[in-house]
Simulated scan of single mutants.
Amino acid sequence: MKIDRTVLRRFSMFERMPDGDLDALIAQAVPKRADAGEAFFEQGAPATHFYLLINGRLKVTQVTQDGQQIIVRVVHPGDLFGFARALRRNDYPGTALTMTESLAMSWPTEAWPQFIDRSPHLAVSALNTIGQRLEEAHTRIREMSTEEVERRVAHTVLRLSQQAGKPAENGVRIDFPITRQDIAEMTGTTLHTVSRILSAWESKGLVVGGRQKLLVRDVKGLQALADASNR
């Protein structure tokens, strides 16, 4: 399977890279396709490759010392993932599990320095990606430490609608399969609690749920819940 450079040009980090440098990166890459529910890598495994998601969606999970599984981030098309070398790690800190059929390009971990040396803009984009992930992680830690569960769930659903929302007839549709268990693992709570919250929101017309589906019907109303303590 050959990936054309026009595919990568869709993503901002490759927009300014000269054709020759981009072709050289593509030549080193190995495309990898995975069905829904497959893992690109697992927590604790040696970090042999890093990846760029071309299409599909992934969730990166971690199992805590007490055995609880949490979702630390969702990977969207155009995102780099698995670049443990940039974090000065030799192993993967989490498991990258597909939420839909997904296609990624992979490079050997040893190619990371060459990968960012190809373009200063690419290096800056990679650093920005790391910074954004750290900021989001800090935000989630603050939310879990200081906010009630309903506000945490509201913030999480709003983030998903911003990152992967598609306009629909009656609101904003989350553009990948998302379960109530997924939301529980993103917010550090239980499936029962998330189910109770979403059911209450449905009765108020804020969201519409379904099997692995979520439609946000009232973004402003959900934002008001998320910002409740600020008023």
Rank of each mutant, 00 (worst) to 15 (best):
I3H: 12
T6R: 09
F14S: 02
E15V: 12
D19P: 02
D19V: 09
D21R: 15
D23R: 14
A27L: 12
R33M: 02
A36L: 03
E42M: 05
Q43F: 14
F50T: 07
Y51W: 11
K59T: 13
K59P: 07
K59A: 05
V60E: 11
T61Y: 02
V63P: 04
G67Y: 13
Q69T: 07
I70Q: 11
V74T: 11
P77L: 06
D79Y: 07
D79F: 06
L87N: 06
R89I: 09
Y92C: 09
P93Q: 02
P93R: 09
A96Q: 10
A96W: 02
A96R: 02
L97Q: 10
T100G: 00
A104N: 02
W112V: 15
Q114F: 06
F115T: 03
I116R: 05
D117G: 04
P120H: 12
H121V: 08
A126L: 08
Q132L: 12
E135D: 13
A137T: 12
H138E: 12
H138N: 15
T139G: 13
E148L: 10
E150H: 04
R151V: 15
V153D: 05
T156P: 02
L158G: 10
Q162E: 12
P167L: 14
E169L: 05
I174N: 03
D175V: 11
R180Q: 15
D182P: 03
I183C: 08
A184C: 14
M186S: 12
I197C: 07
E202G: 00
S203I: 10
L206V: 09
L206K: 01
K213I: 07
K220D: 12
K220W: 00
G221Y: 12
A228F: 06
S229V: 06
